[in-house]
Design a protein around this nucleic acid. Structure first.
Lengths: 197, 197
DNA sequence: CCGATTTCATACCAATCGGTACAAAACTAG
DNA sequence: CTAGTTTTGTACCGATTGGTATGAAATCGG
């Protein structure tokens, strides 16, 4: 009731996400955030709490976007195709000019001060969650015998996320989609094959 | 002449490096730096210029350390062994408890504000320099026929650096040396082999 | 049309940011 | 022992940091 908002909460959040994505958590000042969001400081604090809560909410939006991409890859019939699609589409997303380059969970905060440890840990948790989902998928296919005997699903999942995060760093350094795809194709050559013996 | 320094310039620089490494460029405040270096502000500015110059000098120290590691790997007789050593020793260094986890050129600044663009670009240049050295080595072995025909040295170099940077992100997330080595071993399975045909 | 309620904009808060002025202290050359 | 030079510690600079107090403007239910 009473006076309604003059701004849309979700679009403001998307603007905030863009700033966090481009400049990292610490690099995003409240002034930069409010300017990008088109609102003023008290509105930000009234609506989103404080900087860290705003980040968490923007991060939740990011995870939504990323889940769409990830689930789409996971819909592939085989683990190998899942990863191939993850790499292929990931290369495009990491270099998409419509949003900041790289992956927020990598760009956001690797190094940090004591005050921003929680943010770094949150991003680390997100990364490890995706890795866990991959591992679960690989374990499944290992049990079914669809992945060669002797395949370690945990290592395989860690390898895939490692390459993905490396691709994010490459994107941050200016690598193109095609260059990332070539790297991804090369990584796929490490995919486990049944023993010839 | 006149009054001598009460501190060692290189050890102070190493302390500064440690802070930049742990907290990133923006996260390292002058107060945190002076405290870690055991000197006060005017001494810092008189000796090292300003924050950015201090970072550059600390970064030069870091590159010295990293070169020792890198050159050691490059001393291996074959490209394959170079990369295997790079991965194997890298896993240890990235998780060495004696210094901050991960690689400074990855942790330092992926995302940044307009004022710290130069720092980010400097780190990106360092990363690409190492990649170029790997590429040169691979090109050499391609010409000599020691790498299979059809091998793209540029892609191979980018793949190796991508995995390395991914390992740095993994280390930042708490991965152990052994876990990184397992990933590295898996990555080595992508190494080019001569066509069976 | 009015009163209750909420959002808005301005202007501010203490703390910290990177960076410096200044004078006392400590050293060396003579 | 003194004159001159450099480093040191303290105390400060304006600007910016994340975060708020406050009152005016706007909208709703009645």
């Amino acid at each position: 009731m009473s006076r309604p908002r003059t701004f849309c909460e979700v679009t403001a959040l998307d603007r905030a996400l863009d700033v966090f994505w481009r400049t990292g958590y610490e690099g995003a000042s409240i002034s930069a955030l409010t300017e990008a969001m088109g609102i003023n400081r008290p509105s930000l604090y009234a609506t989103f709490g404080n900087k860290e809560e705003l980040f968490q909410k923007a991060l939740a939006r990011y995870v939504d976007l990323k889940n769409a991409f990830f689930d789409n890859a996971m819909a592939q019939p085989t683990a190998r195709e899942v990863v191939a699609k993850l790499f292929h589409d990931g290369a495009e997303i990491l270099t998409d000019p419509n949003h900041p380059v790289g992956c927020l969970s990598v760009q956001g905060a690797l190094a940090c001060t004591a005050e921003t440890e929680r943010v770094r840990d949150e991003l680390a948790k997100i990364r490890s969650d995706y890795e866990a989902r991959l591992r679960a998928r690989f374990e499944e296919e290992c049990r079914d015998g669809r992945l060669p005997a002797g395949t370690d699903p945990e290592v395989l999942a860690r390898f895939v996320t490692t390459v993905s995060h490396g691709m994010s760093v490459q994107a941050s350094g200016g690598a193109t989609c095609e260059q990332l795809r070539a790297v991804a194709d090369m990584a796929m050559r490490a995919w486990p094959v049944p023993d010839a013996a």
